[in-house]
Design a protein around this nucleic acid. Sequence first.
DNA 1: CCATCAGATGTTTACGTAAACATAACAGCA
DNA 2: TGCTGTTATGTTTACGTAAACATCTGATGG
Lengths: 332, 332
Amino acid sequence: MADVARLAGVSSQTVSRVSNGYAGVNEETRQQVLEAMRELGYRPNSAARALKRGEFRTIGVITFGLSSTGNVRTLEAIATSAAQEGYAVTLLPVAVPTQDEVRGAFSRLGELAVDAVIVIMEVHLLDAVTISLPPHVQVVVADSDAGDSYTVVDTDQAGGSRAAVRHLLDLGHRTVWHLAGPEESFAAQRRTDAWRAELVEAGREAPPLVRGDWSAESGYRAGLVLADRPDCTAVFAANDQMALGLLRALHEQGRYVPDDVSVIGFDDIPESGSFLPPLTTVHQDFAEVGRRCVAGVLRQMHLDVPERGTTLVPTRLVMRESTAPPRMDQAH
Amino acid sequence: MADVARLAGVSSQTVSRVSNGYAGVNEETRQQVLEAMRELGYRPNSAARALKRGEFRTIGVITFGLSSTGNVRTLEAIATSAAQEGYAVTLLPVAVPTQDEVRGAFSRLGELAVDAVIVIMEVHLLDAVTISLPPHVQVVVADSDAGDSYTVVDTDQAGGSRAAVRHLLDLGHRTVWHLAGPEESFAAQRRTDAWRAELVEAGREAPPLVRGDWSAESGYRAGLVLADRPDCTAVFAANDQMALGLLRALHEQGRYVPDDVSVIGFDDIPESGSFLPPLTTVHQDFAEVGRRCVAGVLRQMHLDVPERGTTLVPTRLVMRESTAPPRMDQAH
DNA sequence: CCATCAGATGTTTACGTAAACATAACAGCA
DNA sequence: TGCTGTTATGTTTACGTAAACATCTGATGG
């Protein structure tokens, strides 16, 4: 900066003013400074800036793996929105979703150059974690339960699940089976709860729960079991991957979808329109979740006050070809 | 830091020494300092550290979208390896893969707190881009052509493609059709080139090229065309998503896989084992690509000299149920 | 018994920036 | 003419840290 100032024949403070676009600099001077910057290839030093300003213009994102489509899409939206606001995004992957690991990530974060934190994690660990963060570092949690400790942005899991169940009941199915996600997952739990609630409200019997682990493989295994139940005419799978495995198992066992069994998924991953048959599913707006996370965290930063409460992003039922009314002899 | 020093009754320099784990500090003093740190909740200020040390301990990752499975898995491995080395990862998503956008990302990077850059981008734009980076910022490119400008880490696209084609020829197919990825993609181009080369070397005629855009939907459209060609008994799809769409189209048109048509994919996404039928495909080791990117970039940083040349990560053929010998009347 | 040396700790300084304050030049106005 | 206010610019300082150098203490050995 001093070099630029010397070359432009001004003080370093003026260079600073130009570099930050402040008013009150003569246009002519400004041009000279800009010219000098170009000539010397000057770049502001962000470390010094951060030190002086006391902020890093960076948001940290803690996420358990990038394996799930949802996490990734949310992350992408976060990175994009953050960039628009002039913030960078620093990634903190957590290998295993244990409390220790998460706490470890938070403590590493303490030493990290970060003004705020967004946690994308579907496991319900956060309320229990004693998190120690530098003061004024705001937190927003996506996809999880955070008790009343933090702002939470999430997809409307319950609404989506209920819509899925209702759709199947409306088609005339006596009841709807549920292929649930893993017990540890908070999202899975809420989908299961909503499935059961919707059935109960409709006065239907809830069949026994079948559980997978989100993977297509686990959906396949569950499908082999379900294919043996002739009374199973409609299945709500807690995600599209498991629905994919389910479709394969049913096909192999000679149970036709949707004629014999209707299947509905959750997520609407890009591939689900190409399944056999194309999958009816609940669309999640991950991008919106990401955007709201960033908006929330920035709002908190400006106010410098943590907010509480949950924002729900609505879902949308996407009709394709994997659901149909039950055969006449099985109808309600 | 001064507060900690005062409380511990030492100089700030000693606190610095403890905080950095330097030797030459009396054990007793060390404990006092640590105690004082705990009591005051002291956290080193990373901005000041970066300013003083002249390095940020951060790697920037430029990527075009997080839509492709490969990019994401590579990114995940990068973040994990980087964390192990004590480096943070800052994300720079580029919305559109145009030269301007990429150049823009690089220039934003210039103001960013980053010691090195990894570019994950399958489009071949980089050689043309006049990149202006701060001095001593090293670059590694994954998945792309970078001319001779940078270190490149990539999957052995050619080897994998050749293995796929050879597998189908070995099964007895007269020739192998190819469902290619988009023209702009460097990876797609290399897969196509290798497919053609392998056929030529085996003395076979290369059928006309069918092109998709990586999406399952485009695979479906291509599949409708291919299903009409009775001479098409084996297809090498440039990725698993397109293979998925292809499977659906063939199924709808009454062409059975693998009896009538063999299909092989590329990538080995987690779902491909649950396709109908489970997909034979070429496994890519994205994690290894990510690890090598980080290793490469750190090596360059320590040497402070850019390296050139390409590292290829080998692939592996994963046999499942979508490939089989052709029917007798179609055999070679 | 003192020179020498190693280990432990303190003092000074600079990293690059921007806020706060200071100064200078000049226009408007009574 | 001198006062006030505005605009443009310069000077000083502090952000938190760690390298470089300085100092102090006590032990070792001839």
